[in-house]
Design a protein around this nucleic acid. Sequence first.
DNA 1: AATATGTTGTGAAAGCTTTAACGAAAAACG
DNA 2: CGTTTTTCGTTAAAGCTTTCACAACATATT
Lengths: 208, 208
Amino acid sequence: MKVPRPVIKRMPVYYRCLERLKNEGVKYVSSQKLARRLHLKDSQIRKDLSHFGKFGKRGVGYEVESLLNDITKILGLHKQWKVIVIGAGNIGKAIARFRALEKNNFKVVAVFDTDKRKIGTELLPGLKILDMASLRDFVGREGADLAILAVPASSAQAVANDLQKAGIRGILCFAPVTLNCAIPVEYVDITAFLKTLAYSVLTEKYNV
Amino acid sequence: MKVPRPVIKRMPVYYRCLERLKNEGVKYVSSQKLARRLHLKDSQIRKDLSHFGKFGKRGVGYEVESLLNDITKILGLHKQWKVIVIGAGNIGKAIARFRALEKNNFKVVAVFDTDKRKIGTELLPGLKILDMASLRDFVGREGADLAILAVPASSAQAVANDLQKAGIRGILCFAPVTLNCAIPVEYVDITAFLKTLAYSVLTEKYNV
DNA sequence: AATATGTTGTGAAAGCTTTAACGAAAAACG
DNA sequence: CGTTTTTCGTTAAAGCTTTCACAACATATT
């Protein structure tokens, strides 16, 4: 049975909260305590988890470490994902250098660009910017699962087509466009988040 | 009457699509044509827009430029928003240098950090990294509406408290935490997007 | 051993969002 | 000038998600 998208979007939120609790040395947590931390309803958390199995103990709650492991498996984070970054502009470079990815088992294995002046530059030890023309070869040879698309909107669709042909299985798209793709795509339009935020600021009720 | 959040999240998507159409020189567009571009249902687009007024002409569609102007007003993008960036790490620096913000009427007026070695560095002409200790003074003196929070999760809540006290009205949070705030917050957890993407890749139906 | 307290998992109800359907208006055409 | 085609705005229905409410279980307490 298909799991609703809102549920899937909340799983990483549970994940990071449990990670935190684990670091704080907490052994058990109830849906109620989680709910208070995350501004959700306890019943929603229980219902969400119930889509994947039974993880809690009545009268006790959830064992933090074991639930974290279960969610790790659900999200497929127990094996490492090879990620390539396309576009070595501001965003692309920042992502490539962003340590949180590796901590979460996403390994940036290459960065690509078309700009001759950038190609060959070393972003991190062992991570040089490669020519976009070598994308297909690279993916065929080294393998890569996911791509982070950080190119201008005008070239995003063309690059997405290349990525699919190369065998990439999912795209995280920072370009402000809607792609036509047969593989899964997640969109992160930073200006769109700011626009939503601006709207919220303008329309929020006055708080004393 | 309150506008549903899913509707608000789609408004920037309409915005960027209309912007594109305008650049392509298109004068009129129907809900059906928009829907095909955005992988939505035409009835959804009409219903979404109906929350804010009547913008179309029966038998004709929407005038691209005028609808774009209307959405600009709805989202509050006709006046410039002053934005500060907190945290001059990979993400913070990339955002501060990111030109798309200015094009969308979000002006980065300052970047803050606590690291003595970074303070004073010039990120762009006229945009130096300031001491976090001067935040409150700065916002009081120069004014700022929104903050982009790009600090580690461990300090995010403390900084968010400072931002509220300083008079910031909305936060775009890149830290992987849920904040306790009285002002609007939008979350952009990049690793969370990758996790959702990983899940989709694992569970998608096999396509021939 | 009986009672009190706490918490899960779940079926049913409530609430919300999307989609379908259609009358009304605008333009195009013969 | 009436007919056909197109498309909007809106009401109602369908579909989906969240919340409620409670039985079932677990532990602690007397």
